[in-house]
Design a protein around this nucleic acid. Structure first.
Length: 293
DNA sequence: GTCCAGGACTCGC
DNA sequence: GCGAGTCATGGA
């Protein structure tokens, strides 16, 4: 058993609440605990996360094929974004008429990251222009097809397949999962590039400049501005990233501003531009204004 | 039946 | 460089 703490405010309950409203096959909320199966250098680990009395997180590993404690701790800190200076964002957001109410409603809410870049790209492609719930169904089909899981107390906990493994799935198989022909092409191309290194996490982490990574990402077919920014947010942790064009941001602004019709692109951009280096958390807290689905 | 989903690409001008 | 059409499918 080990414990990790956050840099500033954190509420485990906010993470639980977020996760319960997703249908992500790569983690499960059971009671007040989060279960996640993950690879550590090819070794499978089942992590069980719960709230600690000190406002942090307790990590247990019911199944561990040999990963080190520090590695697992570091993973969870990164996954739940516990190192981020949330107070810094709150100082900024407290002066913003839209965000100030939202940070009170969801005090201690932090981003849940996507640690696996294959997961991030798969999700950003599947999630294009379809409902989130259907996108989760499609992702589940891909993950379960590959079949990597840990069995524990009668439950199956699935692990993210390797990028190369997904890229190698037959196109017809992906089509049968109701993934469109075009998305099938994107998935095979992009995840193939993850496997070959052009889009690997370690390579993308060598970039410091937002504009340069953005340009590199969007040079691949199937990765547009929205997809690039979702990856920059949740995986590469560029704090200024905002998924421009996102339907959720549009709806949230309409709701918070009490508009009769959907806001224009210009109206939205003027708002998100003001967030600057807090763009990522501005986005997250705006999303939190939407009714949970 | 219509419209919209956590978009991106291609084409025509 | 910008707008319209296309892709796919499910749910309201």
């Amino acid at each position: 058993m080990m414990e990790i703490k956050a840099n500033g405010p954190y509420r485990f309950g906010e993470t639980l609440d977020y996760m319960e409203h997703q249908d992500d096959c790569l983690y499960k909320v059971i009671g007040d605990e989060i279960y996640k199966a993950e690879w550590f250098d090819g070794r499978k680990v089942l992590m069980k996360l719960s709230e600690s009395a000190g406002g942090g997180v307790i990590i247990e590993t019911p199944v561990n094929e040999g990963a080190g404690i520090d590695e697992i701790k570091g993973y969870c800190e990164d996954w739940l974004d516990l190192d981020y200076d949330l107070d810094g964002f709150y100082q900024f957001a407290g002066k913003d008429k839209r965000l100030s109410g939202l940070i009170d409603d969801h005090y201690g809410y932090r981003m849940v990251g996507k640690m696996d870049i294959a997961d991030a790209f798969l999700w950003s492609i599947l999630g294009q222009q379809i409902t989130k719930s259907f996108a989760y169904v499609l992702k589940r089909r891909v993950v379960e097809y590959c079949g990597h899981h840990i069995e524990y107390e009668g439950e199956k906990f699935y692990l993210m397949p390797d990028a190369g493994e997904i890229a190698a799935i037959d196109s017809e198989v992906l089509r049968e999962m109701q993934i469109s022909t075009r998305k099938t092409e994107y998935i095979k191309d992009v995840l193939g590039s993850v496997a070959s290194g052009e889009l690997s996490k370690s390579y993308l982490e060598t970039f410091d400049d937002y504009d340069e990574v953005f340009k590199h990402l969007t040079s691949f077919r199937g990765i547009g501005p929205w997809s690039a920014n979702t990856v920059l947010m949740r995986t590469l942790k560029f704090r200024n990233a905002v998924p421009v064009g996102d339907a959720g941001i549009k709806n949230a602004i309409r709701l918070v501003d009490g508009l009769d019709a959907a806001p224009s692109k210009k109206y939205i951009n003027e708002i998100t531009d003001q967030w600057g280096r807090f763009g990522m958390y501005g986005t997250l807290y705006m999303w939190s204004a939407l009714p949970a689905k």
